[in-house]
């Protein structure tokens, strides 16, 4: 099967998934409460409610309501969220909160990749030696770590205790120091805005410092996953004949590992990285709550606790969309990286 056919097939297969997700969110909004709640807030005048019910077709049969719901979704009308304090359309809030989460996730991912791949290589090349054992326990702790607890402990040590001891310490939360700097959001990505639009290097450095702790906390699980995957795929590759051949040609260990083995060992790791990116968004729910990060995750948690159905639906849909896209890209990349894969 050719790549084009494969892509088309994958897109077609993704359609029922997206519809399933839509249906489930609609269904949930029905179980959780009144679907009307998506479109009204406490500030909606009572007199306007019958009009909204009629306009939204909530007096229609269920099937019609379902299609009306889909219709309004496709037209960009995702309901009204109250979680942020004011009544705002969900899409607006999503757009506003999205960059913060993405910035954090990308930072966490960079950190995880930059540490995880070398650790995995070390662990594989030093198999069953002390370095390997330490790396394995480090990686296993990563997947066993309650991320919210880890965040709290990091905050306690690096922020509170360090400042108690008079040491330089990291900030305990937020995206930047509100008192010292002002930020004029343009793209929503603080790191980009501060350098490109605000020309404020101080803010940029401040933002980096604010990213370190939540980024490390969020990235630890991914780091662990990447390390483990890298180790096992590296071990597989090292056993292959062409590595033995490369060694017997007299190449140095370094060249063999980094030039011949690494490339092939990276293929499964790339898959994992892609899938883990979706997982980062989940992790962000917990991390953002702890570090007071004004992103999607914290907003979603608050909206669920506030029974803000429109917001929950919006968040779920967005995340599901990211997941589906990430899987899709992973499949593509896999095909490109590994010429043996036939798109079957």
């Amino acid at each position: 099967m050719r790549l084009r056919d494969f892509i088309i097939r994958r897109i077609i297969l993704a359609i029922p998934v997206v519809f399933g997700v839509l249906t489930i969110t609609w269904f949930l909004s029905y179980i959780v409460g009144d679907p009307l709640a998506m479109y009204i807030t406490e500030r909606t005048p009572d007199a306007a409610i019958p009009g909204i019910i009629h306009a939204r077709g909530l007096d229609q049969p269920l099937v019609v309501q379902y299609f009306l719901y889909l219709n309004s979704l496709f037209h960009g009308d995702w309901g009204v969220s109250t979680t942020t304090g004011a009544d705002q359309p969900v899409l607006t809030v999503l757009a506003a909160k999205f960059p913060a989460t993405i910035e954090l996730s990308i930072f966490a991912m960079i950190f995880a990749i930059a540490l995880g791949i070398p650790l995995g290589i070390i662990s594989a090349t030093k198999k069953d030696k002390a370095a390997d054992h330490i790396t394995r326990i480090f990686a296993l702790s990563g997947v066993s770590m309650p991320i919210f607890w880890f965040g709290l402990m990091l905050k306690y040590l690096l922020f509170f205790q360090f400042s108690q001891w008079g040491l330089p310490h990291l900030p305990g939360g937020d995206r930047y120091n509100y008192r010292a700097y002002t930020w004029h959001p343009t793209t929503g990505f603080l790191l980009v805005d501060s350098l490109v639009f605000d020309h404020n290097p101080g803010l940029f450095i401040d933002a980096i410092f604010h990213l370190i702790m939540p980024g490390f906390c969020l990235g630890y699980i991914t780091l662990a996953i990447i390390t483990r995957m890298m180790r096992s795929s590296m071990l597989e590759v090292i056993k292959e004949d062409y590595i033995t051949l490369a060694k017997s040609k007299g190449l140095t260990e370094r060249v063999v590992i980094y030039k011949h083995a690494l490339r092939n060992a990276l293929i499964p790791t790339v898959t994992v990285i892609g899938l883990a990116f979706g997982g980062l968004i989940t992790g962000a729910v917990l991390t953002e709550t702890i570090f007071n990060w004004p992103g999607l995750g914290r907003w979603a948690t608050n909206s669920i606790l506030n029974s803000d159905i429109a917001a929950i639906n919006g968040f779920t849909l967005l995340v599901a969309f990211i997941f589906v896209t990430a899987n899709f890209i992973v499949d593509m990349v896999y095909g490109v990286l590994d010429p043996r894969i036939r798109f079957g």
């Binding site: 997206v18 399933g20 949930l28 729910v285 979603a300 029974s307 929950i312 779920t316 997941f323």
Partner: peptide
């Protein structure tokens, strides 16, 4: 497989949160 695809499209924690909420 399509049904599991749908489940995999949700991050586990978010889906669990939604279900807990739905169960009330």
């Amino acid at each position: 497989m399509r049904v599991t695809d749908i489940f995999f499209a949700f991050p586990g924690l978010v889906l669990a949160m939604a279900i807990v909420m739905a169960l009330g």
